[in-house]
Design a protein around this nucleic acid. Structure first.
Length: 107
DNA sequence: ATCTTGACAATTG
DNA sequence: GCAATTGCCAAGA
């Protein structure tokens, strides 16, 4: 029985669902998402999946940060700046020195 | 089939 | 704490 889809779209779907599982007000790393999605070491694959997300998606992509606890997106209003703003609305400030990342890290 | 790129991670200086 | 290097895995040209 082939219920295991190796299709790229199915992989994206699984990653998105995992991201949706991140509780509000918390953040997770790409590596954590990858491991939880069933593909440890494929942190980059997570980045690809998130990049493929449409605008106005219900997937909380902004809750995913890199291992440094920082936005991995390029600077700009539609990049790190956007992510930072959205997280701040949930009470998460990725400010250096505050240790907010470790404090709100979800695993 | 080969090479390059990418919203990463861990290690080292 | 930051910058450079190496490793990993999959998608795109």
């Amino acid at each position: 029985m082939d219920h295991d889809d190796d299709s790229p779209e199915s992989i994206d779907q699984r990653i998105w669902l995992t991201v949706c599982a991140i509780p509000r007000g918390m953040v997770a790393t790409y590596g954590d998402i990858a491991q939880r999605a069933g593909m440890p070491g494929a942190a980059r694959r997570v980045g690809v999946a998130l990049r493929r997300l449409p605008r106005g998606t219900s997937v909380p992509w902004y809750r995913v940060v890199n291992a440094s606890g920082r936005s991995s997106l390029p600077p700009g209003p539609d990049g790190a700046d956007r992510q930072h703003a959205l997280l701040q609305e949930e009470g998460v400030a990725l400010l250096p020195g505050t240790g907010a990342f470790r404090k709100h890290r979800w695993r």
